[in-house]
């Protein structure tokens, strides 16, 4: 299982699934499958997506579940 924060980054940038799909050359449905965790991307697609959001690939994908955003913010403040 590969976890990702695709929906968080997508919402932050105000992009639609179609926008992302066109940028990385896949079907918009594939972005939906990725966001739901129903599909693990190839290395190529993971790298394309991380390049699109200008983040390291491990910030976008992980083998362990990501901590909720609220927890991360609370940890930063304390």
């Amino acid at each position: 299982m590969i976890y990702n924060r695709l929906s968080v980054f997508r919402a932050e940038r105000g992009l639609s699934r179609k926008d992302i799909a066109e940028a990385v050359g896949v079907n918009p449905q594939t972005i939906g499958y990725l966001e739901r965790g129903d599909y693990a991307p190839s290395v190529e697609l993971a790298l394309k997506l991380s390049a699109l959001f200008e983040v390291a690939v491990e910030q976008l994908f992980s083998l362990k579940p990501f901590a909720p955003l609220a927890h991360s913010l609370r940890d930063q403040e304390s």
């Binding site: 050359g25 896949v26 079907n27 594939t30 991307p41 190839s42």
Partner: peptide, 11 residues
Amino acid sequence: QEPESLLDERE
């Protein structure tokens, strides 16, 4: 039914 070149990796 589509040729492979017209499908993405998940498809």
